[in-house]
Amino acid sequence: MVEYDHKLFVVIVNYRTADLVIDCMHSLMQPEGVPERTRIVVVDGASGDGSAQKLETAIVENKWQDRIDLLPLETNGGFSYGNNRGIDHLKERYGSAEYVHLLNPDTVARAGSIGTLVAFMDEHPSAGIAGSRLEDPDGTPQACAFRFPTAVAQFEGEFRFGLVSKLLDRWRVVLDTPTEAVRVDWVSGASFLIRSTLLEKIGQLDEEYFLYHEEVDFCLRAAREGWECWHVPQSRVIHLVGQSTGVTERDVAPRRLPAYWFESRRRYFTKNHGRTYTAIADSCWLAGNLLGRVKSVVKREHYPHPPHLLRDFVHHATSKAKQS
């Protein structure tokens, strides 16, 4: 039996969302916020907007220094980079922990939610990863349990047409909201618990991803080594969707997707499935997108996608293909 210095390490990566992180820290510092023997680090990815100073002041004023560290970085290397630096910091300063929890800055942990996730992992030694139920402040569930992306799923996700979607349901990436703990392919990185022995086996997050698809990649690497991934809806975490990036923010007009979204998607497919399969996946996405546009015109529906999506997709797909 391995003896660990701590039960849990928690890493929160901030980029210009200091107020959200302070709310998140408050939720973790409540009596049922985190298990005993937990250390937390807030990593600031070179925000340049005074975030680091604001976070340091909040930690001192609330007397959280004995539980929370602040790690200001000199560069914004993205989600994987920031989380890996946070994990490194905790290991170097505090030794070992049985689990590592990656938590988004735009989350608020409901009472007992983190402890519930840890307890689940304690009871399921074959589980290497577990994710919380993510929800709106009013309790409305969000998509947080998924299948791995495939070429077929790329087509269905863009077309989304009744009978076709029903026929392709077994490939649909987003799963229906589970009510009980269920084994899935991958879970959202917004509340992402990892067993330390898994990290030792497969390594940390791939820093070639700036943002998006890094948790999918990590879960696939884990699955290929025989580890299980579980969605645990009894662990409930409020997720203020899109507040940290603005990309998926609700109740506002869709925004143009940043270049790193396309780059991350392409890296996931080429790294894990090769260039030929990536070309097939791209073709399926394009076919689904074009048919979806035709469907919207015929049915006189509003086309809900981000602006310039098709043009941007083609640009990034062709430019990367040429570089290859």
Rank of each mutant, 00 (worst) to 15 (best):
T270P: 00
T278P: 06
V237D: 09
S191L: 11
R267Y: 05
S165H: 01
F269L: 08
I202F: 01
L168I: 06
H231L: 09
C219A: 15
S165N: 08
S191T: 09
K271S: 15
Y277A: 08
S196C: 11
H239M: 13
V173R: 12
R170H: 04
E207W: 08
V252M: 12
G274S: 02
E249F: 04
T270R: 01
G274T: 03
L168S: 06
F262I: 06
E215I: 12
K166C: 04
A253Y: 06
E249R: 11
E215S: 14
V173E: 13
E214Q: 14
L220C: 03
R256F: 09
L240A: 07
K166G: 10
E228A: 15
L199F: 07
H231C: 14
A259I: 11
P254I: 12
I238S: 12
G203L: 14
A190E: 06
F159V: 00
L220D: 04
E200H: 10
L199H: 05
R160C: 14
F192R: 08
T197L: 08
C229N: 12
L193M: 09
T245K: 04
L193S: 10
T270Y: 00
L199S: 11
H231V: 12
S244H: 03
V237N: 05
T197R: 15
L240G: 02
G242R: 02
G226E: 09
T177M: 08
R221C: 10
N272Q: 14
E249Y: 03
H239N: 12
R172H: 14
G189Y: 00
W230S: 12
S235L: 05
E263H: 13
D251I: 06
R267Q: 06
E263T: 06
R195D: 12
L175C: 05
G246M: 08
R183L: 07
P178Y: 00
D176L: 07
A279N: 10
P233I: 03
A259N: 09
R265Q: 13
D206S: 09
T197P: 02
L240I: 08
R266L: 15
G246S: 07
F192V: 05
S188C: 05
T248L: 14
T177N: 14
L168Y: 00
E263R: 15
W230R: 04
H239F: 10
V252F: 03
D176I: 03
F161A: 15
G203H: 10
R183E: 15
D185Y: 00
C229H: 11
G274P: 04
S191V: 05
T278M: 14
R183P: 02
E225R: 12
L257E: 12
G246H: 02
I202W: 02
P258A: 15
A259R: 15
K201I: 01
W227Y: 11
N272M: 09
H213P: 01
A253W: 04
Q234W: 07
E200S: 15
E200C: 13
A181Q: 00
